[in-house]
Design a binder for these strands. Structure first.
Lengths: 256, 256
DNA sequence: CACTGCAATATGTATGACAATTCACCAAGA
DNA sequence: TCTTGGTGAATTGTCATACATATTGCAGTG
């Protein structure tokens, strides 16, 4: 695939189309603070030069960023970075850029806070509203976790598990939070790295959630999710402490 | 401003650029179900013809829709509508289209459910985390509500009030929900229409929230918001009943 | 000093051409 | 007949260029 010619800018983004690559790069740089809110981006001609692409590609990239609330373009002015409040932090791409840019522990803390708000209630709703098909989805994910051979497989089904619960809650507006969960668990995964001896400990906690949902007991489901998230929170706090002291959380000892 | 030439398609969208208008129209039609998930949109040449614009404009519109997760384009295939799960329902535009397309009462019910999950916790967080500047913002909004002369002004500050609390919660990931609130209250406003004799009744409920936050009492703040949302919920239920019986909620009598 | 108009500049739009991708059909061989 | 391989066509992806439009700021004029 023909990558962007000019040397420096885009590093290893080898996926998809040019405008997508340009959008990725500029978006990431905005989230990284390289372009601050209120700043003017280089004009389109300049960007064409820098990225070595046509104006069409640059403009389509701009339109994507505009749709995500990151910038606003006006004739004669240029493209200006919007204030942070109008960024769609829940957009899949924006979230990824944010998570790559922000400090890891801070990002995970915010994420965990939101999960602590949403997921217990989502589980409670799921306990009330779930259909049999949705219940099957949850079960399948749980089975996947039970049979997971390694951490990678476990994480895959873990994500699927939480998504299935959101889905079963029966409120479409909750579904977009799947992005959050996906990103959170993905980052967690990067974070934990290779201390893979104890990732199974969380299984009973997940199982308890499923039982509560199946029996249609919202309050029990809420509590079960809180228990799970409390456990995760402990892990995060542990990491935060360790990475605060030492360089990196080289080998964190135990999950709790 | 030169509007789109061809007669039918775009009705009264007289704002901004061509690609924006095209995106608006196609986006709205997708949300309306006119193009179902999995369907192929008309190809770009066709759209150029239909909307009477150049391919540039159409393509930039497509890129905006792609960024919102509504469609995906591939060579030789065309642009296909993505499954509902990957729609960014929390995107400002998508939410507006959704709200215009879905049945009003259903939409408001979902919205209210999500608010019921988020806002009490946001208020509790705000009670703990708020800075003095953020507190001033909340106060200002409350004052605006108190002094509002008409329903329009009241609603403006009402939105600002809830946004200020989200902001004060100190979690960036909560801010995008401002879009939700904005849209919710906007639709509510359309919904209530003109029975404007009693919109002041909710003022004390708002005031209670502010007091709790200022005193840094998270539990009290949580309860206060629940009280307010409970009130709103009653209004919604009332409307649902009335519009269920009669044609439209022509003149709903009282807020509670 | 204030107002009007013009020029400069950036994005917005149009057009036409070619590249890249992949589906669908058709033909050749087992 | 079924499979396999190639070839063509349809559609988006990208490029280049030109012109339109909007906004700013300056300059000229009353």
């Amino acid at each position: 695939m023909r990558q962007i010619r000019q040397a420096g800018r885009i590093a290893a983004v080898r996926k998809s189309s040019l405008h997508h690559q340009v959008a990725q790069d500029i978006g990431a740089r905005i989230l990284k603070g390289e372009f601050a809110p209120g700043d003017l981006l280089p004009n389109e001609a300049e960007s064409c030069r820098v990225y070595g692409v046509s104006r069409t590609a640059v403009r389509e990239a701009m339109k994507m960023l505009t749709a995500k609330g990151l910038i606003i373009s006006r004739p004669k002015i240029g493209s200006r970075v919007q204030p942070r409040d109008s960024w769609n932090l829940l957009d899949r791409d924006v979230l990824v850029w944010y998570c790559a840019a922000a400090e890891r522990s801070h990002f995970l803390a915010s994420m965990h806070e939101v999960r602590g708000i949403l997921e217990p209630e989502a589980a409670a709703l799921a306990a009330v509203n779930h259909t049999s098909e949705q219940m099957r989805g949850i079960d399948a994910a749980l089975v996947g976790m039970r049979d997971a051979a390694d951490l990678v497989a476990w994480n895959t089904y873990d994500v699927r598990f939480h998504l299935a619960i959101l889905w079963a809650a029966g409120n479409e507006l909750l579904v977009p939070f799947g992005f959050l969960i996906e990103s959170a668990l993905g980052t967690m995964f990067d974070f934990t790295g290779r201390h893979n001896q104890d990732w199974r400990k969380a299984y009973p906690l997940h199982e308890a959630i499923v039982v509560a949902i199946r029996k249609r007991r919202p309050e029990a489901a809420r509590k079960a999710v809180r228990a799970l998230l409390g456990d995760t929170g402990n892990v995060l706090a542990q990491w935060a402490r360790e990475s605060g002291r030492g360089k990196r959380p080289a080998r964190s000892k135990a999950r709790r």
